[in-house]
């Protein structure tokens, strides 16, 4: 295995006025990592994702992707380098079909910008890969329907399928199972498990069940800063983590 770190943040900071939504966050994902990021509401998880993907610029600190500094790159440039995310709230193209959606992503990745003259679906390798991804997420039976008309759980699967169609090196999953029925949760986990073993995955999730089933390492974010990081057993045994969550439960 290569020793290059898949994704690393160095002292990432971001404030909104007086609010420090991220302070000095240093995170490190090795290739093949199955890492979870947990934290109570308002801990800055969304801000951190936006900083990682380039939607927000940090006030200080750097983001390194496979050894290269990507802090100054736009979201689409980071995505083309393999930093891909899913969204907590579905961000899809409602008027397109799942096949068109996934086909676009695959064809874009394989063909780059030099295929204005081909039609979508003109390349057999694109079609085969898109079909395989749809099949893996059991979306092949609805691949010709309008995305906007699909049931919520199916859209959720497509959300993840679309990210995987981008062939990520680092995959950020933002609450992928939110609102998904139990049966389809397993589909999502299975698909993530089926990723090449050197792909690093960062899961941001509320559902502790899912987190502990999935993660080999867990980071806890509180108030915009990293509280601790460790194996699931260490985190489960950590009294500070328990206090954060119990404290939240007591208030909420």
């Amino acid at each position: 295995m290569t020793a290059i770190v898949a994704l690393e943040t160095v002292g990432l900071c971001r404030s909104f006025g007086a609010l420090r939504a991220a302070s000095d966050v240093s995170l490190r994902l090795m290739p093949g990592a199955r890492h979870a990021l947990i934290g109570p509401n308002g801990a800055g998880k969304t801000t951190l994702i936006n900083l990682l993907t380039g939607v927000l610029r940090p006030s200080a600190g750097r983001v390194m992707l496979q050894g290269a500094d990507v802090t100054a790159l736009r979201p689409d440039e980071r995505a083309r380098r393999g930093l891909v995310r899913t969204f907590q709230i579905n961000q899809l193209f409602p008027e397109m079909t799942p096949l068109e959606t996934v086909g676009l992503a695959v064809s874009h990745r394989l063909g780059g910008d030099r295929q204005a003259w081909r039609r979508l679906g003109g390349r057999p390798d694109v079609v085969e890969e898109a079909a395989a991804i749809l099949e893996r997420f059991r979306l092949d039976d609805v691949m010709d329907r309008r995305v906007g008309a699909l049931p919520y759980g199916r859209q959720r699967l497509l959300e993840v399928a679309l990210a995987i169609a981008c062939a990520p090196r680092v995959l950020l999953l933002d609450e992928p199972a939110a609102g998904v029925p139990e049966s389809e949760r397993d589909d999502i986990l299975a698909a993530v498990d089926a990723l090449p073993s050197d792909v690093a995955v960062l899961l941001i999730e509320h559902d502790m069940d899912l987190v502990f089933r999935f993660a080999r390492r867990i980071s806890v974010l509180v108030g915009g800063a990293l509280l601790t990081e460790g194996t699931p057993d260490e985190i489960a045994a950590d009294p500070r983590v328990r206090e954060v969550y119990l404290g939240e439960a007591a208030h909420g």
Binding site: T53, V55, R74, P75, D76, E77, A79, R80, V84, R85, F87, Q91, L92, F93, P94, E95, M96, E100, T101, G103, L104, A105, H108, R109, L120, L162, A163, A165, C166
Partner: peptide, 19 residues
């Protein structure tokens, strides 16, 4: 198709690598 995607949701279009 990437134009349709951008029109429908520029945020997502960028996150699948479309400039």
């Amino acid at each position: 198709w990437s134009l349709r995607a951008v029109r429908a949701n520029p945020l997502r279009a960028a996150s699948i690598g479309i400039a």
